[in-house]
């Protein structure tokens, strides 16, 4: 039997410390942004979640390819765990985005290329996670899910590229306060770096825990199968 590994413990401790520091810096140490006020502080968490979401979806691609090559269920479990965690981070981005947009842009939702892309990406990976809910058998779920994981992740660059092009072709009234504005204070940079580090660590931690959970589920299934066999032999 495997308990919590040392790596998980270190990761857990590290995530706690860095997350704590990130919160302190984002909410306390970093100065208030001149134009937007305190609302701007949500930006650290907003941007902090985007990066792990991408990381997660890239990992889905990688692990899905590995699964199809090896047919080793472990890869599929890693892919699914990563996809689910990625979906949570993408949801974070979609929730914090409008909260930040309302006071700064004056609207809850603007069809900004980044927002639109994130929404589409969220749907792509919602499809990936949902699909698995509705397939009954393990090996089929893994095989079919991996194919969709690869297609979905390969689509992400096109989603971004097309939205960006779309926006440049159709200039809109300039919205005040882009994301890059106002990050000049070194403490702000620190808050951002800490937030990025904290959420990346959190992604690794959650993905590992998720994969471990799925692994245990798989082991229980195997044990059930073996129990059935033993009963038959008797």
């Amino acid at each position: 039997m495997k308990g919590i590994s040392a790596i998980d413990l270190v990761l857990l401790g590290l995530t706690f410390i860095v997350m704590f520091l990130a919160i302190v810096w984002a909410l306390g140490v970093a100065p208030t942004e001149a134009e937007q006020g305190d609302v701007q502080r949500i930006f650290y968490f907003h941007l902090g979640s985007i990066w792990p979401a991408f990381l997660a979806f890239f990992y889905v691609l990688y692990a899905s390819v590995r699964y199809l090559m090896t047919r080793d269920m472990n890869w599929d479990r890693k892919a699914l765990a990563s996809g689910e965690v990625g979906l949570y981070f993408a949801s974070m981005v979609l929730i914090t985005g409008p909260i930040w947009a309302k006071p700064t842009w004056g609207v809850w939702w603007a069809w900004d290329a980044r927002l639109t892309s994130m929404l589409v990406m969220w749907f792509i990976f919602l499809g990936y996670v949902l699909l698995r809910e509705y397939i009954d058998e393990d090996s089929k779920r893994a095989r079919v899910g991996s194919v969709l994981g690869i297609i979905g992740a390969s689509m992400v660059p096109f989603v971004y590229m097309s939205n960006r092009w779309f926006e440049t072709q159709h200039p809109k009234p300039v919205i005040a306060g882009g994301e890059d504005s106002g990050i000049k204070d070194p403490q702000m940079v620190w808050a951002l770096v800490l937030a990025l580090a904290a959420f990346t660590l959190l992604y690794f931690l959650l993905a590992r825990i998720g994969a471990g959970l799925f692994n245990n589920e798989g082991r229980i299934k195997d044990l059930h199968a073996r129990m059935h066999l033993l009963e038959e032999e008797r």
């Binding site: 058998e137 393990d138 299934k221 059930h224 199968a225 059935h228």
Partner: peptide, 10 residues
């Protein structure tokens, strides 16, 4: 051949 916990063939 195994389907989840069920050994269909062994």
């Amino acid at each position: 051949k195994k389907f989840d916990a069920f050994h269909a063939l062994r």
